[in-house]
Amino acid sequence: MSTDFQQARASLGARLRELRAEITGRDLATRLGWTQSKVSKLETGRQTATAADLKAWADATGHPTAADELQARLQGLESHSRSWRRQLRAGHRPVQDALTVEYERSTELRAWEGSMIVGLLQTPDYARAIFTRYAELHRSPRDIEDAVRARMRRQDMLYQQGRTFHIVMWEAALYSGVCPPTVLSAQLDRLVGVIGLDTVRLGIVPLGAQVAIPPGPGFWLYDERLTIVEDWHAELWLDDPDSLTVYRRVWDALADSAVYGASAHRLLARARAHLDLA
């Protein structure tokens, strides 16, 4: 979770505490039918309130007109941290559609991924395996086929002039057993073909390479305006200059350790041979 997000949540908690000034936390919990610990966590920024929580708080503290202000603060929080629990209520397809909008708005895109093949380069079978694993993790609606189709349609952008993709992956992603071996084999073949596209520059950081910074979570940079970072609990959508600068530095550092062209081909061939021997 980002420092900016934590600070914003703490600020919201402080505002909630101001509204409660005339009654005790225990009394408020009783009025709302909550535990006193929930009141405390919301006020100290250790728990994110829901929209319903904020309206109930405003009403119960005698400040119903503060509800709109609190909702605006919450929307500011969610613009940076988008929990998977909320995003996936309607399944994975809407999330894919939202990402497609950001791709369409961008001309120069950069990605880092250390644990799996990036979505933009996935085969349908590989994507199906990934969506299935995440649906199981988040207990989300299983709109797997709709999500796969949405992801495959987005790959049409790889063949459009005027847009470039600079993708860097860790070699470990080539071996990650998130799908059956036959699916991974076809996926590696797909990457070999991608290297020849004039809109894509694919780099792979070898396992033994010296890196200027430890490889971290996967993220995309959309031009110089937005970074989307993927974590287990949420996506972080960051558009402030300081965050964008940090993630660009991270990407540059990892890209400097990557190999390209024929050297990347050799790493793919090594991973393919490993599968054949397994």
Rank of each mutant, 00 (worst) to 15 (best):
Y126I: 00
R128H: 11
A129V: 07
A129S: 14
A129H: 08
F131Q: 05
Y134V: 06
Y134L: 08
Y134Q: 08
A135D: 09
E136M: 01
E136C: 00
L137C: 03
H138V: 02
R139P: 00
R139D: 12
R139A: 06
R139M: 02
S140L: 06
P141R: 09
P141Y: 10
I144C: 03
I144D: 03
I144N: 04
E145A: 11
V148P: 03
V148T: 10
R149F: 02
A150Q: 10
A150N: 04
R151E: 03
R153P: 00
Q155M: 06
D156K: 11
D156F: 02
M157H: 09
M157Q: 11
L158N: 05
Y159I: 02
Q160P: 00
Q160T: 12
Q160A: 11
Q160M: 04
Q160V: 08
Q161E: 12
Q161A: 12
G162R: 06
G162K: 06
R163P: 00
R163T: 07
H166G: 01
I167A: 01
I167L: 10
V168G: 02
M169G: 01
M169V: 14
W170I: 00
W170S: 07
A172M: 03
A173P: 00
A173W: 01
L174N: 01
Y175A: 03
Y175L: 04
S176K: 09
V178A: 01
V178S: 02
C179F: 04
P180Y: 04
P180D: 11
P180H: 08
P181V: 03
P181M: 05
T182W: 12
T182S: 09
A186E: 15
A186K: 14
Q187G: 02
Q187I: 00
L188R: 09
D189L: 07
L191N: 10
L191K: 12
V192G: 09
V192W: 15
G193P: 04
I195S: 05
I195G: 01
G196S: 13
G196W: 11
L197E: 14
D198H: 14
R201V: 10
L202W: 06
L202G: 01
G203V: 09
G203N: 14
I204F: 07
V205T: 13
V205A: 08
V205D: 09
L207Q: 13
L207P: 00
G208V: 11
G208E: 13
A209N: 11
A212Y: 13
I213Y: 15
P214S: 06
P215C: 04
P215Q: 12
P215D: 05
G216W: 14
P217I: 11
W220E: 11
W220P: 00
L221V: 08
Y222L: 06
Y222T: 06
D223K: 08
E224L: 07
E224I: 04
R225P: 03
L226Q: 14
L226I: 11
V229S: 11
D231A: 12
W232H: 10
H233M: 10
A234Q: 15
A234S: 15
A234R: 15
E235D: 13
E235M: 14
E235W: 14
L236R: 13
W237Y: 15
W237I: 02
D239A: 13
D239H: 14
P241Y: 14
L244C: 09
T245R: 15
T245K: 14
V246I: 15
Y247K: 09
Y247F: 15
Y247D: 08
